[in-house]
Computed example of a mutant assay.
Amino acid sequence: MAIEERVPATRLAPATAPGWVHGVLLVVESFWRWYRRNWRATAVSSVLQPLLFLLAFGLGFGSLIASRPGAEAATGGVPYLVWLAPALLAMSTVQSAAFEMTYPVLSGFKWQRVYLGMAATPLTGAQIAVGHLVWVAAKMTLTGAVYLVLIAVFGGAASIGVLGSLAAAVLTGAAVAAPVMAFSASREDEGAAFNALFRFVVLPMTLFSGTFFPVAALPAWVQPLAWVSPLWHGTELARAAALGTGTAGAVLGHLAYLAALLAVGTGLSVRAFTRRLAP
């Protein structure tokens, strides 16, 4: 009788879960690898669009404003272009954050299912959520730095303080990105929800947060709506850094508001990702 020769089964060592920070960085690396090959697809919305705003409003519309008496009084005695540039930087990060955290997030669950692939590894839902948020902040920093160079080329940088404007803009974008991510992670399909978000939240926030004209120029009953806008707080911070204006109390108040919004939004996103990616 032939003796069967059995090969002993080998045991695969269980995958070791990475440390919390290491896991977040792995998610960031994944998005970076994609962006490094496909950055041209986002160049228009990230850099070209705010540049067109700068040229149209800062140079075009700004030349009309400069000819009106008392115009510099409304901008704190500085040219309109210099006054507008840090606000446009904050506005561009908010618009970018809103877009990055709507369709791409839903796609990560439903269409491309990138998140599901990540969740099949030892990565947790919390690491995936925070990693994507960190990546968006890093991307906003990169594109914002390019925009700062363009601002300087066209004469919109009054001092080295514009570097502080970049930090304020990225914080503002992250404070918007976090709650929008939580909202998108709770959706099963885009439906009319994303259109409503852009039409009734992002667009009014862009127009009525002191970006193109002082909030004081708005009717008195509209001004409180501007004060709750994260873009208004980010615009005030960016201008305070670029122009050297603003009191310490006001700056701390703006920072606290944006930090609280970021913390709450991140917590909601972590919970939504953890529930949706649970095995």
Results as ranks from 00 to 15, higher is better:
residue 245 T to K: 12
residue 236 E to N: 02
residue 143 T to E: 13
residue 242 A to V: 12
residue 166 L to A: 10
residue 216 A to D: 01
residue 157 A to V: 02
residue 166 L to I: 14
residue 126 A to S: 11
residue 205 M to L: 13
residue 230 P to W: 09
residue 198 F to A: 05
residue 171 L to I: 10
residue 234 G to D: 13
residue 209 S to D: 11
residue 176 V to M: 13
residue 155 G to R: 09
residue 241 A to Y: 11
residue 194 F to Y: 12
residue 183 F to E: 04
residue 195 N to G: 09
residue 226 A to D: 02
residue 163 L to H: 10
residue 202 V to H: 07
residue 199 R to P: 02
residue 247 T to F: 08
residue 156 G to K: 02
residue 133 L to K: 13
residue 173 G to S: 10
residue 252 L to H: 01
residue 251 V to L: 12
residue 134 V to K: 03
residue 137 A to C: 09
residue 167 A to L: 12
residue 248 A to N: 05
residue 247 T to G: 15
residue 142 L to S: 06
residue 238 A to E: 13
residue 153 V to R: 08
residue 239 R to Q: 04
residue 197 L to F: 02
residue 161 G to E: 11
residue 180 V to E: 03
residue 220 A to D: 06
residue 194 F to A: 07
residue 243 L to A: 07
residue 212 F to H: 05
residue 190 E to R: 11
residue 165 S to C: 00
residue 199 R to C: 14
residue 172 T to V: 13
residue 169 A to I: 05
residue 166 L to K: 12
residue 136 V to P: 00
residue 202 V to S: 02
residue 242 A to Y: 04
residue 181 M to P: 02
residue 144 G to V: 14
residue 147 Y to Q: 15
residue 233 H to K: 01
residue 200 F to G: 01
residue 210 G to I: 09
residue 148 L to R: 04
residue 182 A to M: 06
residue 142 L to T: 10
residue 229 S to T: 10
residue 210 G to R: 09
residue 166 L to E: 04
residue 253 G to A: 10
residue 253 G to R: 05
residue 184 S to M: 05
residue 201 V to L: 14
residue 191 G to H: 03
residue 201 V to Y: 03
residue 237 L to T: 05
residue 234 G to M: 07
residue 166 L to W: 10
residue 129 A to M: 13
residue 242 A to I: 11
residue 184 S to T: 05
residue 250 A to G: 14
residue 222 V to E: 07
residue 214 P to A: 08
residue 137 A to Y: 01
residue 169 A to N: 07
residue 176 V to W: 11
residue 132 H to T: 13
residue 186 S to N: 01
residue 132 H to S: 14
residue 200 F to V: 04
residue 186 S to G: 06
residue 153 V to G: 07
residue 237 L to F: 08
residue 254 H to G: 09
residue 225 L to C: 00
residue 225 L to T: 03
residue 237 L to D: 09
residue 238 A to F: 11
residue 235 T to F: 05
residue 228 V to P: 05
residue 183 F to Q: 00
residue 174 A to G: 00
residue 172 T to C: 15
residue 134 V to S: 01
residue 226 A to Q: 03
residue 187 R to L: 15
residue 154 F to W: 14
residue 144 G to H: 15
residue 159 S to N: 11
residue 172 T to N: 10
residue 169 A to D: 07
residue 217 A to G: 12
residue 129 A to F: 08
residue 237 L to K: 08
residue 183 F to K: 00
residue 177 A to E: 12
residue 191 G to E: 09
residue 173 G to R: 03
residue 163 L to K: 04
residue 149 V to F: 14
residue 133 L to M: 15
residue 184 S to N: 01
residue 159 S to K: 06
residue 181 M to S: 02
residue 249 G to K: 11
residue 150 L to M: 01
residue 171 L to E: 10
residue 126 A to R: 08
residue 176 V to K: 06
residue 225 L to D: 03
residue 214 P to D: 03
residue 203 L to H: 08
residue 190 E to D: 04
residue 188 E to L: 04
residue 227 W to G: 15
residue 252 L to Y: 00
residue 226 A to H: 01
residue 247 T to Y: 12
residue 211 T to D: 04
residue 221 W to H: 06
residue 132 H to D: 11
residue 214 P to L: 10
residue 211 T to Y: 04
residue 179 P to W: 00
residue 252 L to T: 00
residue 128 I to F: 01
residue 163 L to M: 12
residue 129 A to C: 11
residue 187 R to T: 13
residue 247 T to N: 07
residue 229 S to R: 10
residue 239 R to H: 05
residue 171 L to N: 04
residue 259 A to W: 03
